[in-house]
């Protein structure tokens, strides 16, 4: 399958990307790794008239120690997140989750910024950054603003990013020494999770994110409060599906997804014990 025709513009800076978005408005789409966008274009589920290629904006590809958090450039590839020694030391959950995205070839091209901006509740990284209490730096024509992950994911494939804004940086607080677990349940290799769980625990503090359990990535705050008040993994996990309205599809019914969430959260918390 071949995408519908579009104009192609390659930019070499974040400012140039924003300028293109301002010029072309809603007709333009940013192209990062292309591993969510190109499959949609090939199936003609999307047909923007202009693609603004930010794939070569080199200064948006980095992983930096910023004191209490690690700052990751939006154009950093999944593979670089997966193998980063700095992340393995301070936020190993994110490196672990990046290693679960798709397959080797996908991880060589796909970027963390593309995954976050796409905002797919079935993707691994949005729920992970949410569980970590991360935040996002975005740049628009009026300058920069920072959005907490908890305010960013607003609906199915819908985020707080405006059409003329670019995501530039992902910030994740350090949880050095935390125990972490990433549980991904699927039936086929390389596939998205039917249900996934990203969890970390450091003393009485914990974070639990759910993949594919609603129209957005979800933070299981009832589970986190149960953990904080000393509940066992099994007792805390019993709340995993509280308030979730997961989708039903060929792979799983609503009830089955709720069951999976409880089982996978229990396994994750046991691994973090």
């Amino acid at each position: 399958m071949i995408p519908a025709a579009f104009d192609y513009v390659r930019v070499d800076s974040a400012d140039a990307a924003v300028a293109q978005l301002v010029t072309h408005g809603e007709d333009a789409k940013l192209l990062a790794g292309g591993h969510s966008l190109l499959p949609l274009l090939k199936l003609r589920l999307a047909s923007p008239s202009v693609l603004v290629d930010i794939g070569r904006v080199k200064d948006l590809s980095y992983i930096r120690d910023a004191g209490d958090h690690i700052a990751i450039g939006a154009l950093t590839r999944h593979r670089d997140v997966e193998i980063s020694e700095m992340l393995k030391q301070h936020v190993s959950l994110l490196a672990l989750a990046a290693g679960e995205v798709g397959d080797n070839q996908v991880r060589h091209r796909g970027t963390i910024g593309g995954s976050i901006a796409h905002g797919d509740p079935a993707s691994d990284l949005p729920a992970t950054v949410l569980a970590l209490g991360g935040s996002f730096v975005v740049k628009g024509p009026k300058g920069e603003r920072t959005i907490a992950a908890s305010d960013f994911f607003q609906g199915f494939l819908t985020t707080a990013l405006a059409a003329d804004e670019l995501l530039t940086e992902i910030r994740v607080p350090k949880i050095t020494g935390a125990k972490v677990s990433f549980q991904k349940f699927n039936r086929r290799a390389q596939d998205w999770a039917i249900v996934g769980v990203a969890a970390w625990k450091l003393g009485a503090k914990s974070g639990v994110g759910l993949v594919n359990m609603g129209s957005t990535p979800i933070r299981a705050s009832t589970v986190e409060s149960a953990v904080a008040s000393g509940a066992s993994a099994a007792d805390a996990a019993a709340h995993a599906a509280d308030g979730c309205e997961p989708p039903a599809d060929l792979n799983a019914s609503v009830e089955y997804r709720q069951h999976l969430a409880r089982v996978l959260v229990r396994r994750a918390l046991e691994e973090c014990a």
């Binding site: 292309g34 591993h35 190109l38 499959p39 593979r79 070839q105 996908v106 060589h108 091209r109």
Partner: peptide, 9 residues
């Protein structure tokens, strides 16, 4: 690096 050339322009 290995990439899927059907998913690159």
């Amino acid at each position: 690096e290995s990439v899927k050339s059907c998913t690159v322009l």
